[in-house]
C-alpha cells in the first residue's frame, strides 16, 4: 500500500540488467565472485578501457554503473556511498578519481556511463567470447568508426555509382518496353543534380 517507489530509492541504470546474477565459477564461491568483480571494477576505473571475457565484463559493468550512478546522486558526503566506493575500489586513490573526475564527467550524461564492445577472437579456436569494456569519454582513440557513412569514402562512391548504373539500366529496359528507344527521359531532379556533380568531380580527365 504505502510502498515506496523503487526508483526513488535506487536510481535507474541505463543498461539492461539480467534477472539473475551470474555465478562466475571459482573455488571460493560467492565471495570469490565478488573478489573477481571488485578487481575488474577497480581495473576499469584505473585504466578506463579493458579487454576481458564477456560474462565477467558484462557482470562488472553493472556494478561499475551502479557505483557511478550512486556517486552522482549522493555526492562524496554520503556515508553509504562512500562505503560502497571503499568496498569496490581496491586502490584507494581511485575513490578520489570517482568523485573528482568521473562524477563531473558524467553529471550531464543521459546515456550509460560505460560501453561494451565485442572484441575480435581468433578463428578456429575454442576461446570464449571477448569484449572491450570502457568508460565513456576516455582519452584513447575510438574503437568504433562512426565515419563509415561518409558518402565520399571510396567504397561508398563505388557502390553508389554501381547502384546508379543498375538503376539506369532498369530505366532503359522500361523505356524499351514502352517503346521509347531514341531518348531516355531524365529521371528525377535529384538525379540530375547528381549527374552535374559527377561531371564536375570525376569526369575531369587528366593525362595519366
Amino acid at each position: 500500500m504505502n510502498q515506496a517507489e523503487v526508483s526513488k530509492l535506487v536510481s535507474k541504470l541505463r543498461i539492461k540488467i539480467p534477472n539473475e546474477p551470474r555465478k562466475l565459477r571459482n573455488i571460493k564461491g560467492p565471495e570469490g565472485r565478488l573478489d573477481k568483480l571488485r578487481k575488474t571494477v577497480t581495473g576499469l576505473f584505473k585504466y578506463e578501457r579493458i579487454e576481458l571475457n564477456y560474462s565477467r565484463g558484462d557482470e562488472a559493468r553493472q556494478y561499475a554503473e551502479r557505483l557511478i550512478s550512486e556517486a552522482i546522486r549522493h555526492g562524496d558526503c554520503h556515508k553509504p556511498t562512500m562505503e560502497a566506493a571503499n568496498y569496490w575500489l581496491l586502490e584507494k586513490e581511485l575513490i578520489h578519481k570517482l568523485f573528482k573526475v568521473l562524477v563531473p564527467r558524467f553529471q550531464d550524461c543521459n546515456t550509460a556511463y560505460t560501453s561494451i564492445i565485442n572484441a575480435p577472437r581468433a578463428i578456429n579456436t575454442r576461446s570464449t567470447e571477448k569484449v572491450v569494456l570502457e568508460l565513456k569519454g576516455n582519452p584513447y582513440p575510438p574503437l568504433v568508426n562512426k565515419q563509415m557513412n561518409n558518402k565520399l569514402l571510396i567504397q561508398n562512391v563505388l557502390l553508389d555509382a554501381a547502384k546508379y548504373d543498375y538503376r539506369q539500366s532498369k530505366y532503359r529496359e522500361m523505356a524499351e518496353k514502352i517503346g521509347i528507344t531514341d531518348e531516355i527521359k531524365p529521371t528525377t531532379n535529384k538525379d540530375e543534380n547528381r549527374t552535374n556533380q559527377i561531371q564536375l568531380n570525376d569526369n575531369k580527365l587528366t593525362e595519366n
Binding site: L158, D160, D165, I198, D202
Partner: peptide, 11 residues
C-alpha cells in the same frame, strides 16, 4: 601505352 586520369565513379 598509358592510363587515363582516375575516375572512381566509372567503376
Amino acid at each position: 601505352h598509358s592510363f587515363p586520369g582516375p575516375d572512381i565513379r566509372s567503376g
